[in-house]
Design a binder for these strands. Structure first.
Lengths: 189, 189
DNA sequence: CCATCGAGTGATTGACCAGTCACTCACATC
DNA sequence: GATGTGAGTGACTGGTCAATCACTCGATGG
């Protein structure tokens, strides 16, 4: 039964809302331990209707992931545009800064971590490769940097994910400082 | 009922066997989507007995993770010993080579990836930090390299995990080559 | 030969969850 | 004001899984 007094919307608009909810919820608890009902609750929707909007759990996760990489690519593009000169190193630096800003709320970052772990599901692995290809190509083409610098850029991105996942930047200890040094991580949440 | 003709072993020996099984099985399907029964089957044990050996699923996973980092630390140590001279860069290089050999079967690598994703469980996050601390300290102390080189060492380790998870080294495409270039990844399986 | 203790299991329980289906309700148009 | 269509839901199902418990069996020592 439709909630009394609720105004109906189009299913396309609803789909967008659900994808946003999915990003937030999957980011917190990962793919396998997040029930569809949690996404539904966040989107203020019944669990059953989620299955009307998406054919299954996997495709919802993939939709969230696609949106995630789209946002990342957009941020990197903005970062590149922000650099004044054409020094590749400088452009990559600006891209890194833009990325750090984007993932300030950690949702997009954690979603990528969870996706990597769930990559034994082929659709998810494909989505990650698709996203990573987009990001890598973007970093290379817009910066004009040589391949090894682009590789380094991605590697330090991965390190950044590790630091954020484990909250290393808020933790005491020589070793944690070694890993976090100079990484432009955002303040938590 | 105990299997007819089976010789009993001590529970400590069994625990070791179960941890080995746990590494293999958790590495394939991750923490949340691996049932205890799968570990039990691999160890040729009843699911019920696993709970006699470990208080719960989490502590079994943590035991597997502890063992994983122990093996990694051991390999790195061997690698460091293998270097003839005392050039820090060269020592780190040997350590990387030793690591690449160790994770040839991908189990220890994937276990780390899954652990990072399951780090919202505090006991698991603690285990990962413990292991990473051990590895970082070892890399720094044994190589004598400056902090930024140690940081780079770990960052490229993370990149290596990403490449292996997504099978990038077997995939066509400019971008995949950019990320995989020069990484000493093992042959699959 | 009997008692004891640790190894190991079968059967069960209680919770949770992906996915389905028949249904109701709001809205637009004629 | 009848009617068709798409938004949205409640109730259910079949399956899975962590955890528990009462039990059996084998070995060891007196």
């Amino acid at each position: 039964m439709t909630k009394r007094g609720a105004t109906l919307s189009t299913s396309d608009a609803r789909r967008d809302v659900v994808v946003d909810a999915a990003i937030a919820v999957f980011a917190r608890s990962g793919y396998h331990s997040t029930p569809i009902s949690a996404v539904a609750a966040r989107a203020d929707i019944s669990p059953a209707y989620v299955f009307k909007l998406f054919p299954g759990k996997v495709s919802l996760f993939v939709a969230a992931l696609d949106r995630c990489y789209e946002l990342v690519a957009h941020a990197l593009s903005n970062g590149a545009a922000r650099a004044e000169n054409t020094d590749p190193e400088k452009i990559l630096y600006e891209m890194g800064g833009a990325y750090a800003e984007l993932i300030a709320d950690r949702n997009l970052l954690m979603l990528q971590v969870h996706a990597q772990s769930a990559a034994d599901t082929p659709e998810i692995a494909d989505a990650v490769r698709r996203g990573l290809a987009k990001v890598t190509d973007l970093a290379r083409d817009r910066s004009g940097a040589p391949d090894d610098q682009v590789q380094r850029f991605i590697a330090y991105g991965q390190l950044c994910h590790l630091i954020a996942t484990l909250d290393l930047d808020e933790r005491a200890g020589e070793w944690a400082a070694v890993l976090s040094a100079g990484i432009r991580h955002p303040g938590k949440k």
